[in-house]
């Protein structure tokens, strides 16, 4: 019998829409949408199992082989640089990584720029390319607060609609890069389940191309 493929999905809206696609292309597992305490959902017939993980942990599960496949945002991949294959751009969960702050925050270039962010590695490499001296302040949430209470000059964060920024009198000053969800695969699992993973990717690719 074919080996089972385990998939780590990010908790939340993105994960749910990704699961719908998996379901449509023949990797359904109905019990996953039921409310309950179960953590792992398995469909022996379709040879697939799923579990929900915190979005920022998906890549860790995949790199360590706890899941063969996972779905993670490019933001997480750039920040963590996991040693995995990135086989597909799923084109979902589109947003961008941006520098935001008060209107004139980037005007004074004669001093260290204080940057608050959940993504210190992304911020560091972005400003390293500009050779700008910065100080990173790592936060874990409510990043927009930082420039308002003068904790930092700017923030580096994910921007979807820009609504939260606007409400707080902040604006996008620069775009770092575009973000979307990616399909990642453990390097060892790829060697032992090549055929099954290729098949799954092929179907996903077709389905995504349809839009």
């Amino acid at each position: 019998m074919n080996p089972m493929i385990s998939v780590a999905l990010p908790k939340g809206r993105l994960g749910e829409s990704v699961y719908k696609i998996f379901d449509e292309i023949g990797y359904g597992c109905p019990e996953i949408m039921e409310e309950g305490r179960k953590l792992i959902f398995e469909n022996a017939e379709n040879r697939v199992s799923y579990f929900w993980a915190k979005p920022s942990d998906v890549a860790i599960y995949v790199e360590h082989g706890a899941a063969d496949i996972g779905v993670a945002g490019l933001d997480i991949l750039l920040e963590q640089q996991p040693d995995v294959f990135e086989l597909l751009d799923l084109g979902l969960g589109k947003c961008r990584m941006a520098v935001a702050g008060k209107k004139d925050a980037l005007r004074d270039t004669d001093r260290t720029l204080r940057v608050a962010t959940k993504f210190p590695n992304i911020a560091k490499s972005y400003y390293a390319e500009q050779s700008r001296e910065i100080e990173i302040i790592k936060l874990n949430g409510s990043i927009e607060l930082a420039p308002i209470v003068k904790l930092s000059d700017v923030i580096v964060d994910i921007v979807e609609t820009g609504k939260t920024l606007k409400e707080n009198d902040l604006e996008v000053l620069e775009t770092v890069c575009d973000i979307s969800a990616r399909l990642i695969v453990n390097k060892a699992a790829f060697r032992f389940k090549t055929e099954q993973i290729e098949q799954m990717c092929g179907k996903l690719r077709e389905r995504i191309a349809k839009g």
């Binding site: 790199e63 360590h64 082989g65 040693d83 453990n186 390097k187 060892a188 699992a189 060697r191 032992f192």
Partner: peptide, 9 residues
């Protein structure tokens, strides 16, 4: 080289 059950080379 990879062996089944170990997640990296």
């Amino acid at each position: 080289g990879f062996i089944d059950g170990v997640p990296s080379a």
